[in-house]
């Protein structure tokens, strides 16, 4: 099952940094699930990375994928 990572303020909303998620086959299904569980995410800006690559469109997920929700970067 895909692994899911949350960073920065998003981890505060979900109250976890890492979890596994069952029953989703794409990033769209994943986000529908997350928006349902954590409606506050709808107010936040973030990017989605699958296996460390940013994705802009709905992406098919496999069992070994690592999906990360990345809020706006603030390094420096």
């Amino acid at each position: 099952m895909p692994q899911l990572l949350f960073f920065g303020p998003l981890a505060d909303i979900t109250r976890c940094k890492k979890t596994k998620i069952t029953g989703v086959k794409s990033t769209k299904e994943l986000m529908d699930c997350l928006y349902n569980d954590f409606p506050e995410l709808l107010q936040r800006k973030f990017k989605i990375a699958v296996n460390e690559k940013l994705v802009n469109q709905n992406t098919k997920l496999s069992e070994s994928d690592v999906v990360a929700l990345l809020p706006p970067f603030a390094g420096g």
Binding site: F7, G8, A49, A68, L70, P71, F73, A74, G75, G76
Partner: peptide, 14 residues
């Protein structure tokens, strides 16, 4: 480099 680090590297500050 400064610009690229700020915009492309997944780092956050609290």
């Amino acid at each position: 480099i400064v610009k690229l680090i700020k915009t492309t590297v997944p780092i956050w500050k609290k």
